[in-house]
Design a protein around this nucleic acid. Structure first.
Length: 273
DNA sequence: AGTATCTCCTGCGTGC
DNA sequence: TGCACGCAGGAGATAC
């Protein structure tokens, strides 16, 4: 599942191939994604130059003069640069064509989306999907003080609180598990029980683990932007995620795996307090 | 307002 | 070997 590092890696990977180029065609083979693709509106962008490729949370934003395309990869989506003559495979739902190259979207589970916000509707930040998002975890706006204050009087579990986009964007299940382990904090605790000191550790670890994954993604960029279109997981060392019933890397105690809000949650009952 | 639950979809693992 | 079943998972929608 693409988490923030994968989305950012995708952005960096595809952007040099399409930015500043003119959209010459739109080929939508499957409009039924999480929300229906507004086919005619997207096609109306043909002839316009792609001004920028940016990211907000896990949303990719492709800005054109008359509007901005919003792309989300959902659970299983990927974007890759192809030769525009290349025939689509199963689950390749749409292409944005820029002359001889194209940006191709593949998503077996169809949890992703392609939407358009017209420039006449206002700034992209005002879009319904974006306006209530929390801070970007890698920017200075995401601080220990912010997280501490935001968590006051919250009764839900710390992990679910972290995974809520209104708290902070881009911390999905994998990184919530990893950062809580690295900070030595039990995921089941109520968010409101977080101390200032713990908040500092947690924010540090979230930033660290996300930044490191983006770095590692950079090394595999060429692999997926080029041909096979499978971004896959970064060659990252996951300390707890997917390691339930295996020994803790710190103390050898067997890691515990539970469900929090139907999400796989793994932690060490000795190292995480 | 905050919290928990439901929902979309397909591939994959499991068990018979 | 084949088939039915069930589950995972991002995050908005819905219910309370």
């Amino acid at each position: 599942m693409p988490e923030l590092p994968e989305v950012e890696t995708t952005r960096r990977g595809v952007s040099p191939h399409i930015e500043a180029r003119v959209l010459t065609g739109v080929d939508i083979r499957q409009a039924k994604l999480r929300w229906p693709i507004p086919v005619a509106e997207v096609q109306a962008l043909v002839g316009e130059r792609l001004e920028s490729v940016t990211r907000r949370g896990k949303y990719l934003l492709l800005r054109f003069h008359s509007g901005t395309l919003i792309v989300h990869l959902g659970m299983s989506g990927s974007l890759r640069i192809i030769n525009s003559q290349e025939p689509p495979l199963y689950h390749d739902h749409f292409d944005l064509v820029f002359g001889e190259v194209a940006l191709r979207f593949c998503d077996p589970r169809k949890f992703g989306c392609l939407l358009l916000m017209s420039a006449t509707e206002g700034a992209i930040e005002q879009h319904k999907l974006l306006e209530k998002l929390g801070p970007e975890p890698l920017l200075e706006e995401f601080t220990a003080d912010y997280l501490f204050k935001k968590s006051r009087k919250r009764t839900q579990s710390l992990k679910q609180f972290l995974m809520d986009n209104h708290t902070v964007v881009g911390v999905g299940n994998i990184y919530a598990n990893e950062s809580l382990f690295m900070a030595g904090i039990k995921p089941t605790r109520k968010a409101g029980s977080l101390t200032q000191k713990e908040s500092l550790r947690l924010v540090e670890k979230i930033k660290f683990v996300l930044a490191r994954s983006i770095e590692q993604g950079g090394t595999t960029l060429r692999d997926f932007v080029g041909g096979d279109g499978k971004p896959g997981y970064f060659a990252q060392q996951l300390l707890v995620y997917g390691r339930g019933d295996k020994p803790c890397v710190n103390c050898d105690h067997i890691l515990k795996e539970i469900r929090l809000g139907a999400r796989s949650t793994v932690y060490c009952t000795k190292c995480q307090k």
